[in-house]
């Protein structure tokens, strides 16, 4: 009686569930690969071997770090301008009405179109690549932050005004903490969106980075290589979430009951 109870209790622990679901995933993969026995789906062990080989040879760290640098650059630019524009539009109704159409247009241009146009207009250069990613990401940030800026607490803003906080203090202590959840949400969706776009940008017009490597593997029909790079990339993004975003979230939420 008691061991089965204990087992059931363990079943509910999130760590156990996470591990089990991961094992199940690997199991299914292995089963499917054995059943198909085809070049199109190598088993997990083969992918792990490729992953290790690529890490040791320095190829994977090289391309991964280049892609991450591009991600960092375009992400920072998009967040900086997106926050600024979002706050202005959220606080000024006339400007908001005026530019709303622009946002809708930008939001609906397919990523591929911006990328191709940027390369045609500015050439196959680094800045064109970064710009293409920024243009894709910017409207999403603006829309999210605008939502936050619209719902700023009027009572607290009045309080800040009556106590002569001034612009800097008001922004740091009254406005920013209220925008923080929106910034975090823009960051999360932003990372997920940007890294998908960035691979296409690299595939189309760069001679290094993950996108370029994946293109190469595609031409060689090297599925193990594709999967190995994908796993490395997903792991890095997950690390950013766990080591950077989660602690940031927790730190800024500590005032909540």
């Amino acid at each position: 009686m008691s061991p089965s109870l204990q087992l059931r209790a363990n079943w509910h622990s999130p760590r156990v569930l996470h591990t089990l679901s991961l094992l199940l995933f690997l199991g299914l993969w292995q089963g499917l690969a054995s059943y198909l026995n085809s070049m199109a789906l190598p088993p997990p062990v083969a992918v792990a071997e490729v992953l290790w080989r690529e890490i040791v040879s320095g190829q994977l760290p090289h391309h991964l770090s280049i892609t991450l640098l591009r991600l960092l650059a375009s992400f920072s630019i998009a967040m900086l301008f997106g926050c600024a524009i979002g706050i202005v539009l959220g606080r000024n109704r006339q400007l908001d009405y005026f530019f709303d159409n622009w946002l809708v247009i930008l939001l609906n241009i397919p990523a591929l179109v911006t990328i191709i146009l940027c390369y045609i207009w500015f050439g196959l250069v680094e800045s064109a690549a970064i710009l293409a990613v920024v243009i894709n990401k910017l409207p999403n940030v603006v829309v999210t932050i605008r939502e936050g800026a619209r719902t700023l607490d009027q009572d607290l803003l009045e309080m800040a005004r009556s106590y002569h906080f001034g612009r800097r203090k008001t922004f740091l202590h009254v406005v920013w903490p209220q925008l923080h959840p929106f910034v975090m949400s823009a960051t999360r969706t932003g990372l997920a969106l940007i890294w998908k776009i960035i691979l296409v940008v690299e595939l189309l017009g760069r001679s290094d980075g993950m996108g370029y490597q994946l293109h190469l593997f595609f031409q060689l029909f090297d599925v193990a290589g594709i999967l190995a790079y994908t796993i490395a990339f997903v792991a890095v993004i997950q690390l950013i979430e766990v080591l950077l975003l989660k602690p940031l979230d927790e730190r800024s939420q500590r005032w909540r009951r």
């Binding site: 009045e158 309080m159 903490p177 005032w255």
Partner: peptide
Amino acid sequence: YVFQNPRLLPW
């Protein structure tokens, strides 16, 4: 100014 509700910054 002491407002009707305290208007403290919760964070």
